[in-house]
Structure formats: C-alpha cells, structure tokens
Nucleic acid binder design. Sequence first.
DNA 1: CCTGAAAATATATCGCC
DNA 2: GGCGATATATTTTCAGG
Lengths: 144, 144
Amino acid sequence: MDRIDYQILSTLHDNARITISEMSRMIAMSQPAVTERLRKLEEQGVITGYRAEISPSKLGKHTTAFVLFKSNNCKEFEVFGEATPEIVDLYRTGGEYNYLLKVVTETSETLETFLETCNNFGFSSTLVVLSTRFEDKSLVGSTE
Amino acid sequence: MDRIDYQILSTLHDNARITISEMSRMIAMSQPAVTERLRKLEEQGVITGYRAEISPSKLGKHTTAFVLFKSNNCKEFEVFGEATPEIVDLYRTGGEYNYLLKVVTETSETLETFLETCNNFGFSSTLVVLSTRFEDKSLVGSTE
DNA sequence: CCTGAAAATATATCGCC
DNA sequence: GGCGATATATTTTCAGG
C-alpha cells in the first residue's frame, strides 16, 4: 500500500464509476498497472464494494433517526433488524444500550409506527436527525 | 420513476461499477435506453454519487464510535467537524444533544485523544461500536 | 511491477419508430 | 421513451523488460 494505492482509493471514494483509463491519466500510470493494483485492493479486502448513493427524500423517505436500543434477546433482535427495511444500519455497541440503529422512514408518523414495533423487543431512545451536515468523509487523506 | 428505474437503482446500490451493457442484459432493455434513464436519475438528484466502500481496519482504523454532542456554539463546532478527519459523519439532531458524530480512529487511545479535543466545544457522550452488523441497507426494495 | 500493442467489450450518438 | 446500427473509447490479455 503506497501513495498510488491511496490515490486510487481516494479517487474511487469520490467517484466509483470513473473509468480506469481516466484514473490512469490522473495518476500518470499505465492503465493495465492501475487495473492490476485495483484487482489487488479488491482481493485484499481493502475495497469492500461500490455503491450508488441514493437520495432518501427523492424516494419519499423524509425522516431519519438514530435509535439507541437495549435488548435482552440479541438473537431475536438481530433477526428483526435484518428483516426490517426501515433499519438501514445496525451496530452492536458497548455501554448502557447494546444496539444503535439508523432508521429511515417516510414521515415522522411512519417512524412512530416503527418505534412502537420496537417496543416489543426492549427499551429504546430516539434521536431524530434534523439535517445531515456530511456523511462518509473519506478515510484516506488526500496526501497519504 | 417506474419499476425499471427501481431495478437500476437497486442494481447500482449493490454494485456501482457494473457496466451499463451488463445492466441492460439483466433488465432486458437496450443499452441506450438504460443510459438515458441513468442520466435522468442522476440529473434529478435521485442518485447523488457513487462511492467505493473502504475497509477501515485495512487502513489501520480499528475503532468506531458514535458521539452525542451538546454544543452552544454551532458555527464553531461545525467548522471543527469539517476540519477533523476522524469525524466521518455529522448529523444535526433534535433532543437533549444537538449533534451526532460517527468517529473512526486507529485505536481506543486515539479515540480518547479525540474526545479530549472535543471537550473544548461542549459536552459529549460516547457509544463505542463493538461490531457492525450491517450498513447501508438498500432503500429500494427488490420488488418495487 | 510495469509498459505497449492488439483483440474483445462497452459507450455515445445517430436516425427512426 | 425506446430500438438498432455504428463510430469512439475502454478493458482484457499477453509478450517482453
């Protein structure tokens, strides 16, 4: 993992659909060499995937919240988490609560319905997101 | 936005680097038609970007935490948030705290240093992530 | 590990329905 | 909106340093 690998990671973090040819021009290296480096970064698990970012509001999902959760039946709760489309992220945490969920719903009413379902599994505390300042800041600094 | 648009979104959410030709085969539509639909989805802001997912641990970042924050100088705090590479996500929230941060650091020691810096801006409460069950579940159901 | 060249794919841009 | 055809660009593959 040298500086060129970091440049590749940084570039793909900004735009995962860039062509390898264009990247190879940006970083002044032949296109087959970039292809091979990229293949290795994927193989080693440094890059775990590529995803399109989709605007929740354009899909009618206008409410985002984080829910702290305390469950005493973790297996059951995780099955529920997997099966529930509103739960976008699911983290196991230390401290008073044992789960943190990111939840995306259509309106605050839909969020309320979701939270009522949650009450079947334990105790929760909700933080409503008013706005997102930024998300997914790059882990690789521009000069690494 | 019909069923085909949802198929395009779902496919790109799973793999943002798929070729349009391959997508056009999967959804049985001509390549120029898929290209045109994709162009419109980007133009309308339904798709806001494409990013590579990078494994924090492969970059030596082994600690993730969420930090609840109460600041009484929001402008100052947001400038700090932008400038601080450890802060990966920054949300404005309602309730007792006014910010929620996702923080990624190398070790728990680096997290501690970060939290000490934070104390200059207000009061915080930290939830350490033990493990991530899943992240970025698709907002578009497979049959929409 | 990288380059350069050639063959196989993919994309952009037509005119047409 | 979508299709087919074609010109341009990109990716894959591989011999050679």
